[in-house]
């Protein structure tokens, strides 16, 4: 069975390590915050100017001056700190953020990512994504394996305008966990009950499959 969005987030949460500073993008990545393993301490960075993002506020306690990068009302946690946008991207650019998790429209086998524009159709802008992918030490993409038309989002070459080049290390989809390995996708794990053949058929880029591929566990 393919993973749902919550399970994708749950699997990514297993990558977190104690002491990590983590930036979570909008969409599936935001859900990762709900599955931080017990016993480890991570600090969430929100690029609009906050380190130490807490959960949503209780009803009636929303503060319009306190939002995350997705413009959602949030809270702080003990040890939180606010800063301006230049410093926020200063800490991103200088590699202080240990892990970035973001969504994508397409990823290719060299680690390029496209996520901000569909020419002639959709122009929302890149926000902070280009800064994040250009500088993060470790980037995980959270996305569906195929688009709504059933076409692969893991490509030999991205067709949409790029957000960054040669930057993506790992991809967690509803079907599989893959890494970018010497210009190819390498299959690391598969969703429970999903065959290697199905993943192969839904991956347009070159896929390395070595030995038995374990199922994703949580």
């Amino acid at each position: 069975m393919a993973l749902d969005k919550t399970q994708i987030a749950q699997r990514i949460a297993k990558e977190l390590q104690d002491g990590y500073y983590v930036n979570l993008g909008i969409g599936i990545p935001t859900l990762v915050a709900n599955y931080i393993p017990t016993g480890i301490n991570v600090v969430l960075q929100s690029e609009n100017g906050l380190l130490g993002m807490g959960p949503f506020p209780f009803e009636g306690e929303e503060d319009p001056d306190l939002i995350n990068a997705g413009k959602q009302t949030i809270t702080t946690v003990p040890g939180s700190v606010f800063f301006d946008s230049a410093m926020s991207f200063g800490m991103i650019r200088s590699g202080k953020v240990d892990l970035t998790v973001l969504g994508a429209m397409e990823v290719n086998q060299d680690g390029d990512i496209a996520s901000w524009k569909i020419p002639g159709k959709m122009v929302k802008g890149m926000g902070g994504a280009m800064d994040l992918v250009a500088s993060a030490k470790n980037i995980i993409v959270a996305m569906m394996h195929t688009n709504r038309e059933g076409e692969s989002k893991l490509l030999k070459k991205c067709t949409l305008p790029l957000t960054g080049v040669k930057c993506i290390k790992k991809i967690v989809t509803d079907l599989a966990v893959l890494e970018v390995n010497n210009g190819k996708f390498k299959l690391l794990e598969r969703a429970q009950g999903v065959s290697v053949e199905e993943i192969k058929s839904k991956t347009e880029g070159d896929l390395i499959v070595e030995g038995d591929i374990p199922e994703i566990t949580f």
Binding site: S85, M130, D131, A134
Partner: peptide, 25 residues
């Protein structure tokens, strides 16, 4: 890019004509 926007404003305020950033390469 958001960080580029912020930093270009900051550069103006710091009296620097330009900055180098990897965003968008």
């Amino acid at each position: 890019p958001q960080g580029t926007l912020a930093t270009r404003c900051m550069a103006a305020g710091y009296g620097m004509p330009a900055v180098f950033t990897p965003a968008g390469v």
